[in-house]
């Protein structure tokens, strides 16, 4: 689909067989809804609420030719690049985080031309998802004007029809698939997110197909008791998969904090062995465990308990900060 093509996006949505029934399914079946060559938008941000079960599933099912988009891309992007699943990334930033320095994986793949990086500002990409969510071809913004980012992603400076001033038109992004991790979902696809919401709700509405993993599957009654807390309504969602601790080694607001030492070890292996460090990680953490539970069993229980305690402490307002 070409950028901003709201007519095709709407036609695709109307042609889709939507159903109001059972959406609870397995990661394998959800993953089969992603096709080679698809544009996959990844929810969460950096190491917050990364949908790791579905990322692992795309790797295990050996998808190829994917375009990935996410405003801050982290090691999920690196895993998919090294596995050869990705042709293009659409992002404003990629790395693990400031303390770990430049991403060797990003450098190797983009500098060699194997992966194209389409760079946007945060807001530029955010408004592309929002335009998609709104079903319109573009949104005007004041960001990115005057920068070279105008030339690498498909922005268009246009004259405002009312004031005549120059504004930047960013084209709607309609991902083929969105993969998201949320706190709670019911079997009909209604989703609750605690804490900051990142770009997930916009991504869900913009995408043609929406796959969700959830920490908890709760009864529909819970949504009826707190309808104001629903971030994504069920009719937007195609598949729901139960994935407790599903964003590890990253964080899920209020539930568990990122295990930064996990990333220390991951980056140390890359510094030591280059891309083979990532391949060894893939063997151990992606191709090895056959189920979500087997993957969970790879984590040290004491570390998991510590990260859960940190998650509770950090979201407890009774603990004084500076």
């Amino acid at each position: 689909m070409k950028p901003g093509d709201f007519i095709v996006a709407r036609q695709r949505l109307e042609a889709k067989r939507r159903h109001a029934g059972e959406k609870l399914t397995s990661a394998q079946d959800a993953g089969r809804l992603v096709k080679d060559g698809d544009h996959v938008a990844v929810g969460g941000c950096l190491f917050s609420r990364t949908p790791m079960l579905l990322v692992r599933e795309l790797l295990r099912q050996q998808r190829r030719g994917l375009t990935l988009s996410r405003n801050l891309m982290c090691f999920e992007g690196e895993l998919l690049m090294v596995a050869g699943a990705v042709d293009q990334i659409v992002t404003s930033w990629q790395g693990i985080g400031l303390p770990w320095g430049l991403s060797r994986v990003l450098r190797e793949h983009v500098e060699s031309g194997r992966v194209r990086m389409e760079e946007w500002s945060h807001l530029g990409l955010g408004l592309r998802y929002r335009a998609g969510a709104m079903g319109v071809p573009f949104l005007p913004t004041l960001t990115m004007l005057g920068s070279d980012l105008m030339d690498v992603g498909g922005s268009r400076p246009i004259a405002c029809p009312f004031t005549g001033e120059t504004v930047n038109a960013v084209p709607a992004l309609f991902p083929d698939v969105a993969i998201l991790h949320v706190h709670r979902a019911d079997r009909h696809g209604n989703c609750q997110i605690d804490g900051y919401t990142h770009m997930d709700a916009d991504i869900a509405r913009a995408a043609s197909t929406v796959l969700v993993t959830a920490e908890e599957i709760v009864d529909e009654e819970e949504f009826r008791h707190h309808p104001d807390r629903t971030a994504i309504p069920g009719f937007v969602v195609d598949a729901v998969v139960h994935a407790p601790l599903g964003a590890m080694p990253g964080e899920c607001y209020g539930l568990y904090e990122t295990d930064f030492e996990h990333f220390d070890r991951y980056v140390a292996a890359i510094n030591d062995k280059g891309m083979d460090g990532v391949r060894e990680y893939l063997d151990r953490w992606v191709y090895g465990p056959a189920t979500h539970q087997e993957w969970l069993n790879l984590f040290d229980p004491a570390t998991v308990e510590r990260q859960r305690r940190f998650g509770r402490e950090l979201t407890n307002p009774e603990v004084a900060g500076v």
Binding site: L72, T91, S92, W93, Q94, G95, L102, S103, L106, R107, V110, E111, M117, E119, W120, S121, H122, L123, G124, T143, M144, S147, L149
Partner: peptide, 12 residues
């Protein structure tokens, strides 16, 4: 020659 991380929020 060197692919740096990118704008992040800097441009905005």
């Amino acid at each position: 020659k060197v692919r740096l991380p990118g704008s992040g929020g800097a441009n905005d």
